[in-house]
Design a protein around this nucleic acid. Structure first.
Lengths: 129, 129
DNA sequence: CTGGACCTTCCAGTGCAGGGGAAGGTCAAA
DNA sequence: TTTGACCTTCCCCTGCACTGGAAGGTCCAG
């Protein structure tokens, strides 16, 4: 199948598939005599895996690592578990930071419940911040 | 004061201050006869304001808008309040997305509590995802 | 044989907030 | 006078995951 068909089957674009090949996420495709990329149907599964990895918040670099392990003939399960653990920790930290920021902003707002422009000196630009 | 002194006083770098000037966050500085930027002491307050804006999660573009209103002689309080309201909504949405992602990943992990590489088919790359 | 849909490569840009480093000018102290 | 710290402008680079577009080749229907 050609790159456009594969892209449609996998829910992405031809441009993105060339980009993935360039980044080492897809192996270099076979070529027709005229130079067109020619994919086997199971390429869809590989792209689906990339999408599942992205849905789990992994970067393309991390997904490439997993694929490289699998391509090397080993099972990447343990590496995947480590990546997911790290991702969970990251997410927890991000949520904590956002929660703190939410509190900070809410406090700023409470500290200026009635905006009174006259009490905002030009020096401090705005009493709100 | 020269740009290096100002940078140290404001807790940033000379490079960043030139960048801010370029981006319209700081007015073009006075120059000494030899071409050095020459700042009044109150420049520190303006940079502090930029930092407070950043601490509230505003982008430099948003901070520039606020400063432009103040520089135009008006009080930016209402615009600031709108920006903070929008930021709060964004943060809430981000937290919701991260929470959902956290749940998704945790479920993936539970679905594969005992990693068994043999049950991972190469086709699906990894049972975990 | 022509038009249009598809394909190829390559270069460049997006948004965000700066950082790195070159090439050259200035200033104060030793 | 010379060193070394500072300053100037300039352009390119970073990370992330693409996206746009130009210039040209291929394939198939009408």
């Amino acid at each position: 199948m050609r790159i456009g068909e594969l892209a449609e089957a996998a829910g992405t674009t031809a441009k993105t598939l060339r980009f993935y090949e360039d980044q080492g996420l897809l192996p270099p495709a076979e070529r027709t005599p005229s130079g067109y990329r020619d994919y086997a149907p199971d390429a869809v599964a590989r792209i689906d895996f990339v999408h599942r990895g992205q849905a789990a918040g992994l970067t393309l670099a991390q997904i490439r690592q997993i694929l490289a392990i699998r391509d090397g003939g080993r099972a990447p399960c343990e590496h995947v578990r480590d990546l997911l653990d790290a991702r969970l920790a990251e997410i927890e930290q991000q949520i904590a930071q956002l929660t703190a920021l939410h509190g900070t902003i809410a406090k700023l707002k409470r500290g200026a419940a009635q905006p009174d422009p006259d009490t905002c000196s030009p020096d401090q630009v705005c009493r709100y911040l």
